[in-house]
Design a protein around this nucleic acid. Sequence first.
DNA 1: CATCGATATGTCTATGCCGATACAACGGTC
DNA 2: GACCGTTGTATCGGCATAGACATATCGATG
Lengths: 235, 235
Amino acid sequence: MDAGFEAHVRVGEETFDGRDAALLRAVAAHGSLNAAASTLGRSYSRAHGRIGDLEAQAGPLVERERGGSEGGGSRLTENARELLAQFERLQAALEGTATTERLVLDGTVRERDGDLVTVETAAGTVGALALTTADDVQASFRSDAVTLHAPESAPGESETSARNRFEGDVLSVERGDGTALVRVDVGAGDPLAVRVTATSLRELALSAEDRVVASFKATATRATAAPDAGESGER
Amino acid sequence: MDAGFEAHVRVGEETFDGRDAALLRAVAAHGSLNAAASTLGRSYSRAHGRIGDLEAQAGPLVERERGGSEGGGSRLTENARELLAQFERLQAALEGTATTERLVLDGTVRERDGDLVTVETAAGTVGALALTTADDVQASFRSDAVTLHAPESAPGESETSARNRFEGDVLSVERGDGTALVRVDVGAGDPLAVRVTATSLRELALSAEDRVVASFKATATRATAAPDAGESGER
DNA sequence: CATCGATATGTCTATGCCGATACAACGGTC
DNA sequence: GACCGTTGTATCGGCATAGACATATCGATG
């Protein structure tokens, strides 16, 4: 039961997707559309047509050369490299959110101010951006959105823009490759997972049972409708 | 040229996507698969088959009733509501990252430690999670990942797990509905955009030309390959 | 027991996508 | 001028998907 996605970038009427990105990468790697298509197991004519369609919307993507000692070839334009980089940033960003753990807190909306809502949860009150008008909500946020502080030096409410703040005990520290996952009991059902660098782990001198303050921004917290048992309108 | 995606949740052999989610929502809203299919402009037989396929992997999704005064009907199981909620959280999370502004910093990798790299950029040195082995990279992060501090009370390096820190001048403050977008000049090409709540804006008393400290976590920063002008390996 | 509206199931067919194939044009090298 | 490997262009056929349609079944109601 794991999460996934297909990224794409709209460019005019066309939709540039992972398949297109692979094609451009292969062209860059092989120096010819022919070789690119065949290594991808795709037909040359389709690949050719696809590039034509994309170029009609995005401007020149490949510089073509016909004839010559090696028959010619194709190279990416600056334009194409830019598009590809944009796609890859998007892909990386989405990849991050799809694979990053999230903490989900069930709660009830207490206050609204535009998109911003105040939600009461088992762990305390949190601010969140609302994507729903329902009052029974789940507030969730990414484990990499949380900053840990030593309790004695945690900044005051009015000194930072991180509005949400929990205090709790470190349950476990799981060392990874350059980063570590710290689990903190904040009084909610599930522990709060926080991904930090190995350096931070060392400088905060964190280990199990230590007391820490966890802060995260309301604008990085999303409130979505809770899975309602009864009936209360669609969408 | 805007970003998008198609979310899906793998469940056994099947892939639960936005189309499936819409179907389940319509069933919940109308109380019958027949009405659901027809309001979605889809054929009943296909919709029926699709639900059967999904149930083979995910377990019961709808409770069916045949016959009766109103011919019967279908209602979602708890299981289905759970699946739908999971999908909607994913959708919301991805939606957030696809629409949230990102700051992109061009830079060069100076150091590696597992997935973690140190990147030198025009605005300063930042830690990031690397998704590439290239040395010319773009470090990017979400505008909602950045916490603002008053300069005098910004926490020290060893007191928090936010490893990246810039100091700069506020360029502009753009008030929205409950939140505001603060642009900070940090010496990079583009300004750093930070989304904060209206409350934070007030408590930090931010306005243009103020000096602020912006901090964000290395684990929320992603390094992707820069659009390389020359040739340096595929992928 | 006929009616009605829903579930349940199978088949036909239109459509879109894509690989496969064929063929022309190009321009260096031999 | 023949050769070669590429870029262009057009067409055919296979395959998967999904709508359209036909039909059977179910069960409360009147």
